[in-house]
Design a protein around this nucleic acid. Structure first.
Lengths: 238, 238
DNA sequence: CGTGAACTTGAGATTTCTCAAGCGGGGTGG
DNA sequence: CCACCCCGCTTGAGAAATCTCAAGTTCACG
């Protein structure tokens, strides 16, 4: 079910039919990518922007000595390198699963934004929400314990996948390994593993076979200090 | 020397005279604000955007129990609540020093962006660079030791203040207290204090009387793992 | 000259890390 | 079809970074 990108973009602003059509036309053919494939390499200028249509990806910066910081996880409907419209890429994007992507020429998107304010507005909101998520991760890494931090990330991922239509009941796909979680939270793999066990022991989640189940949302959200305001879901008023 | 905002914005894209004039006209009278004044409160919708013309400010989120995460420091020339053009504010902005600000109605700015692509481009770049800085802070909080992290922040602040024209020789104004540094880096005040002493002992900096001096830039940058690419200074190609 | 905020110091407590090793399942080549 | 192997997960134990608490000092400002 690769949702069309225009449909995802319409979650960020009111798009009329002409807007949606123009957006769809901007993107080229759907391309299949393998798990582990690099969608965007740090430093490359590139002439296109990439929409993720199916599967999950993550954005990261890897230092010389191998330390890696993951900055974000991407769900279907995300434009993973929006930044490239105006800046060079300072981080890379890698597929977590196999999936499908489509690309649009930068020039076309820029023209679209100039001609269609609603499209520009949607892209602005998409970009600003991503920045809001970065800030919330900073709160986690700066102020929260490992337990709270992991719980918070699980809440965030579940909530975002829900908005992207990937949730079934209390379950969502969860392809990230414990190493991915560690690198996104600034924790060691060993510690992440122990905290996940604690979350399971406390009856808050199960996490296996690349699937996350939330067993007790109220208690998990409380333990996570999770307040979804920062995700600005459904916030479309101008 | 409150630089005019249009001049600062022109660091982000090529603006012609008409662009600059239109930007200047969008902003109302210059207003003086005291140190500690709140420029923007979390949650308020607001109908204007605020440009910082003189002084420094910081953006932060404060949790119920008093823990506070600082997300960014702002220099003259920054639009501190650009986010407000499209979303509600999920954090607050407070003055670090006394200073001067000017406000522009959201509507006027939105019209300006629609009518003048170069202005829109500049604002996009401003916003995306802010997000790039957030990501780099995540790298610091997730992967770097306290020593490296503090050194990195000092490099960043110095470099950004240089771009804002606030540097004299090897010195720049530095109004943040050790508590501000701590809250931006996710460290305790005590530890921040000890690491600052180590940086002084190592002959890398002096920091007193609200002024930072860089004694040995090459060694400091090396200790900080500082690579200014992420600041995208002077990157204006479309 | 008094006062408070910012800075500094000491010492013990805690979280989290590192190193090292073992386990388990799924995919692949023989 | 089976065996092997690698990757991801798990466990134990000691080490390190960083925190908390508590107290004292300095300096700018009223």
């Amino acid at each position: 079910m690769p949702r069309r990108f225009a449909e995802s973009l319409a979650l960020y602003a009111v798009l009329d039919d002409a807007d949606r059509q123009a957006v769809e036309l901007a993107f080229g053919p759907v391309r299949t990518v393998a798990a582990g494939a690099t969608l965007v390499e740090r430093g490359e200028p590139g002439q296109t922007c990439t929409a993720l249509l199916r599967g999950q990806a993550f954005r990261h910066k890897t230092l010389r000595d191998g330390r890696r910081q993951i900055m974000s996880f991407h769900a279907p409907g995300d434009l993973v390198d929006l930044q490239r419209l105006f800046l060079s890429m300072d981080s890379s994007v890698t597929m977590l699963t196999s999936g499908e992507v489509a690309q649009a020429p930068k020039r076309t998107l820029l023209e679209l934004m100039a001609a269609r304010p609603a499209v520009a507005e949607a892209l602005w909101r998409m970009s600003l929400i991503e920045a809001a998520i970065f800030r919330e991760w900073m709160v986690g890494m700066g102020q929260r314990s490992a337990y709270t931090r992991i719980a918070h990330l699980l809440c965030e991922i579940f909530t975002r996948l829900e908005a992207a239509g990937q949730v079934q009941g209390d379950r969502c796909p969860f392809p990230a390994t414990q190493a991915h979680l560690s690198d996104s939270l600034g924790l060691s793999v060993v510690h992440t593993n122990r905290i996940l066990q604690a979350l399971r022991r406390d009856g808050l989640i199960t996490l296996e076979a690349h699937e996350l189940a939330i067993l007790d949302w109220p208690r998990l959200a409380k333990a996570a200090e999770f307040d979804p305001d920062y995700l600005h879901i459904g916030e479309m008023a101008a």
